[in-house]
Amino acid sequence: MIRFDNLSKRYPGGLEALSNVSFELEKGEMAFLTGPSGAGKSTLLKLLMLMERPTSGTLLINGKNLNRLSRSAIPNYRRQIGVVFQNHQLLTDRTVFDNVALPLQISGYPASETGRRVRAALDGVGLLDKENLNPLTLSGGEQQRVGIARAVVHKPKILLADEPTGNLDPKLSAEIMAMFRRFQSVGVTVLIATHDINLINTMDERIMYLENGMITDDGVRHGHH
């Protein structure tokens, strides 16, 4: 589903954020991307979001080369991915419902269908009773769950998350991770960038360790239960 082939990203000024990164994620696979800050986790996600373009190498999504995607094709590509952001990226001028509905409105869904899907997504993250509130009135954990609902409301095949448990306590973090697992169990390919090594070590999932722009370790770590 996701394949990096010798991919490098060099920023103007010479900083090489990623060098010769290669890995593959199967459909329905879940993986964590970890490593010290500045190792290139965010850059890797930005390449997947087409917020950045690689300097060299190829990035294949479902067998198709992202390098060949023109600027005008980017919106349609992004509609097929769900993203959970570290800082939630919720809009504070509208309700929880309208925040979650945004990807559907952008894709032109009719109102009735939008309402049905938004409520299903909010139900999935346990926030159905908060749909008319402003995100500002919610706690950090609830805001992150609204972000997750928005990321999955259009049923993407790929779900990306950048530090989704950033400022949450261990209990809330575990809840959020359990949610990602649920999406994986229904066939969504999930890639989560996080520095929360203690948490992911308990999850028996594939972990890719990124250091100085290179993958130095890739595999499932068992134990620590």
Binding site: M49, M51, P75, F85, L91, L102, P103, I106
Partner: peptide
Amino acid sequence: EEIIVVKLVGGTDAY
């Protein structure tokens, strides 16, 4: 801020 979020979730330039 809104424009960035809309672009991130796949809003076209026209939108």
